[in-house]
Amino acid sequence: MEDRKPNWLLTLFLLIISAPILIMYFWLFIDSISEINTDGLWPEHFTLRNWRFLYEDIDGHGNVWKATLNTAIFATSVVSIVVILSSTAGYALSRLRFPYRSQFLGFVLLLHSFPSVTLIISIFLMLRLIGLYDTLVGVILVKAALELPFGIWIMKGFYDTVPWEIEMAGLQDGASRFQVWYKLVLPQIMPGIAALAIFSFMAGWSEFVLPLILVPGSETKLLSVYLAGLMIDDYLSDFGLFKAVGLFYIMPVMIFYLFTQDKLMNIYGGGTKG
C-alpha cells in the first residue's frame, strides 16, 4: 500500500479549485427545497413543494416516473447493444484477418467524427420510413449506432493488449476459438468492458437531442426531454421545480459515477492491471 497519510495541502488545493462546482451543486440542492425569491440570491422558507412532480403530474408534461422508466430502458438498452457489439467487433478487428480490415477500422473512426446533430434529419426520415419514429426501439438503435464506433475502438485497444500466446495456449489446450474468446480473452478485458458500460450508460442517460426529435410523444418521453419541456413552458416559470427535476435527473449519474470512477480511469490507462 502507498502512504495513506492525508496530504492536507493537496486536499486544500483540490478543494479550492473544485469549490465552484461543489458550491453550484450545493446551491442547486438548497434551492430545490426552498422558496425562491426571484430577485434575490438567498433562499427563504423551507418547502418540499418543488418536489411535487414526484407524486403529481405537472400539467401537460406527463408522468415523471414514466419518463424515468423510459430513460432507464433507453440507457440500459444502449449499454447492452454497445457492449455486446463492441466486444465482439473489437475482437474481430484486433485478431482476425479479413479483407479490408484496416479500411474498415478507418471507416469506423470516420463515423465517430460526425456530430449526431448533422445526421438528425436523415435519421428522422429513415425512422419515419421504417416505422420506428416515436418508438423507444428506434431511438435506442440510433443512439447505440452512434456510440458504437467509440466502443469498438476502445475494445479493440483493450484486445490488442492481450498477448497472442494466451490464445495459442488456449487452442493448444483444446479450446475452440469461441471458448478461447469467452473463457480466456474476455476476462482479461473486463476493466475495459466495465468502463465502456459506464460510459455508454452515462451517454445514454444524458442524451437530449436524439430523443427530443425522434421520440416527442408523451408515452416515450425521456427525462432530459421532460426537463427541457418544463423549462420552455411559457405558463410555468417555477425555478424551484426546474431545479428539483434537474437534481432528480442527475442523481443516478452522480451516484453511479461515485462508485465507478476508478473503473472509468481504466479506459485511459488501457488494459489489465496485476
Binding site: E165, L171, A175, L184
Partner: peptide, 18 residues
Amino acid sequence: PQEKNVGVVFQSFALYPH
C-alpha cells in the same frame, strides 16, 4: 491444434492471469 494431443510451453509461459 484442438485435435492433436500436443502440449506446448510458450516462451512467455502464456499462463491465464485471471
